[in-house]
């Protein structure tokens, strides 16, 4: 038995125990969310910490009419943002990652510097701008600012991704006669899919969960995205925790399904960076 293996074995039990505690700490809020979402108000006050039986599905029935509308709204906002972010991240990342031009690094620094600006500082100027462009009340009031925030990290990730792809692939394509557009469509794009998957996941997480900006700009209750709609179940004087948490669970499911579907690509993309 190697020394290494013996050392591993010696620490195995405390290590596993520590991991178990960490896993429990991570998982408990989700379990708490699930447990509360299937409790009646009485059950909630009877047993605060854990599941109670029988499950009360009334909360879901109560929130679904509003939540389903919000999910559709959010899908619209997120999809619109995603399309813009993916196209611009691909183009920007490719340009910064694979092309040579004077001032490239300065231009890139200018883009990355945007990451340093706290989002909250931009709320007022952004609101004034969106209002001046007469976009308030339209989906673009959410889609364009969301895309504006997300393309920065998107371009950053895609640049790193493209820089790590072997240059010989692009040179080979060039020698074979591919023009710039063909290079982008037939070489860069297929190779960039894992990277784009990563950008897409990060973008979806952001747009789906964003609360503050929609709260400020969306006045119409029927156009609320999920984060704002879910918050709506928290009344002014009392909180219906069962309904609130059922709404949280409902709005999380689409994102979870998407994440599970693309998690392998996501990890591949992160490895590629």
């Amino acid at each position: 038995m190697s020394t290494e293996f013996r050392a591993l074995k010696r620490y195995a039990v405390p290590q596993q125990f520590a991991l178990l505690i960490l896993a429990a700490l991570t998982w408990y809020p989700f379990l708490f969310l699930l447990a509360t979402s299937v409790k009646s108000p009485n059950q909630f006050f009877e047993n605060y910490w854990w599941f109670t039986f029988p499950f009360d599905w009334a909360n879901y029935a109560q929130v679904w009419p509003k939540v389903s509308v919000a999910i559709l709204n959010s899908a619209q906002y997120s999809f619109g943002t995603l399309v813009i972010v993916l196209i611009l991240s691909l183009l920007g990342g490719y340009t910064f990652g694979r092309m040579k031009f004077p001032g490239k690094n300065v231009a890139f620094l200018c883009v990355v510097a945007l990451l340093m600006i706290p989002g909250v500082l931009t709320l007022v100027p952004l609101f004034v701008e969106v209002k001046a462009l007469k976009l308030l009340g339209t989906p673009w009031a959410l889609i364009l600012p969301f895309a504006g925030f997300e393309i920065v990290i998107g371009i950053y990730i895609m640049r790193l991704f493209f820089e790590r792809l072997p240059g010989e692939l692009f040179q080979a394509a060039r020698i074979e006669g591919a023009n710039e557009v063909q290079l982008l469509l037939f070489v860069a794009l297929p190779l960039a899919l894992p990277g784009l998957g990563t950008v897409a996941i990060l973008d979806l997480l952001f747009t789906w969960n964003e609360l503050l900006w929609p709260l400020i700009t969306v006045g119409d209750a029927t156009k609320m995205p999920v984060a704002v709609a879910a918050l709506g179940f928290k009344g002014e004087h009392q909180v219906d925790y069962g309904a609130l948490f059922a709404a949280y669970v409902s709005v999380s499911i689409p994102l979870m399904v998407i994440f599970v579907a693309v998690v392998r690509k996501f990890i591949k993309g992160i490895e590629g960076i």
Partner: peptide, 21 residues
């Protein structure tokens, strides 16, 4: 003259095959 129009074929050390094709 651009590489594509020089009438050359090139083999790279890494082969540079397109992995998705």
């Amino acid at each position: 003259t651009p590489a594509a129009e020089r009438g050359v074929g090139m083999l790279f050390q890494s082969y540079a095959l397109f992995p998705h094709l």
